[in-house]
Computed example of a mutant assay.
Amino acid sequence: MTWGEVEKRLKENDIIIVPVGSTEAHGPHAPLGEDTFLVTRMAELVALKVGCTVAQPIWYGSHPYHHMGMPGTIVVPEEIFLGQLRAVIAGLWNMGFRKQILLNGHGQEYVIPTAIHQFAKRYQVPGIFINLNWYHAIPEHFKTKEEGGSYETHFIHADEVETSWCLALFPELMDMEAAVDTKPRGYLPEGHVDRAGNLLQRPIAWYGHVGLGPIEVAAYPEGVVGEATLAGAEKAR
């Protein structure tokens, strides 16, 4: 958009969605920008319906410890990521967008709220600033068949669930002939530590520990945690 187009849009709608993604390994079948593509496509679909604006996405994100060393994964330190998010929020506010939704597509939901609160404390300006993790908006659409849903397995990473959403939103970027499966494992009995999105409501959040599971580069060098070959676009649609 040109600045003139932005000014015209602001008179109609001052809501902006900021896709917050990452660059990381998602197996041999999916693009490194998968998390960013997911939330950008979602934001575009929402904007077409409601008339809001979509910001340019944030391509590089923060990562938990167990992602360290994985080829294709670019880890931005938390303090740098927080500074970038605060700067983006400030720049969009100066532009005139007083209502901002940071639509997150990556396992960094424990970092983004801190940036929002830091911004609010530092600048103390009027506005609405929201962190929405897309999977938290629609938990009913992550259920397994046993729970009345579409999937054989629970959501983890580059697996049946996440790959299904990719096939629904950007099939042209996927190579399912290269998809592989792995067997997830942890060091405590099943039921203690939650999986991606904390959708199972288990006592320990997936990001609430270090050491209760293996690091990705050692246990899942394929970049998949789960069964990607089970994915299908219709499961996500």
Score class of each variant (00 low, 15 high):
83 G>I: 07
88 V>R: 00
57 P>Q: 10
180 V>M: 02
143 K>M: 04
104 N>A: 10
148 G>C: 09
126 P>Y: 15
134 W>C: 04
107 G>W: 05
175 D>L: 08
224 V>I: 11
85 L>N: 01
82 L>F: 14
114 T>F: 11
12 E>L: 14
40 T>F: 03
121 K>M: 12
72 G>L: 10
55 A>V: 08
193 V>I: 13
13 N>G: 06
218 A>L: 11
77 P>K: 02
35 D>H: 07
154 H>N: 11
116 I>M: 05
66 H>F: 15
213 G>W: 12
118 Q>T: 10
165 W>Y: 15
153 T>I: 08
90 A>G: 06
159 D>M: 08
175 D>T: 09
230 L>N: 06
36 T>P: 07
50 V>I: 15
158 A>C: 09
54 V>P: 05
23 T>I: 10
37 F>C: 05
149 G>M: 02
168 A>Q: 02
214 P>W: 01
53 T>A: 13
33 G>E: 09
34 E>G: 01
204 I>N: 02
116 I>S: 02
161 V>E: 02
10 L>F: 07
189 P>Q: 13
188 L>I: 12
2 T>Q: 06
220 Y>C: 03
69 G>F: 14
135 Y>R: 01
130 I>D: 00
174 M>E: 07
211 G>C: 01
128 I>M: 11
170 F>I: 10
158 A>R: 02
93 W>K: 00
187 Y>C: 01
164 S>H: 03
136 H>N: 07
154 H>T: 14
23 T>F: 04
5 E>N: 11
117 H>L: 10
143 K>Q: 04
62 S>C: 12
63 H>E: 15
188 L>P: 06
157 H>A: 02
191 G>E: 15
102 L>R: 02
206 W>A: 06
211 G>S: 01
13 N>I: 05
216 E>W: 13
40 T>V: 05
82 L>H: 13
33 G>I: 08
45 L>T: 10
40 T>S: 08
209 H>A: 01
93 W>Y: 14
45 L>N: 11
156 I>W: 11
149 G>C: 03
12 E>G: 08
120 A>P: 05
120 A>E: 15
174 M>L: 14
112 I>S: 06
121 K>A: 12
30 A>I: 09
140 E>K: 04
44 E>K: 05
225 V>F: 03
38 L>Y: 07
122 R>K: 12
17 I>E: 06
189 P>H: 13
127 G>D: 14
163 T>A: 09
55 A>E: 09
96 G>P: 08
93 W>C: 00
152 E>T: 11
169 L>M: 06
214 P>D: 03
237 R>V: 10
124 Q>W: 11
153 T>N: 12
29 H>C: 07
19 P>N: 10
65 Y>R: 00
106 H>S: 10
168 A>P: 01
145 K>Y: 13
192 H>R: 04
200 L>N: 07
215 I>R: 05
104 N>F: 09
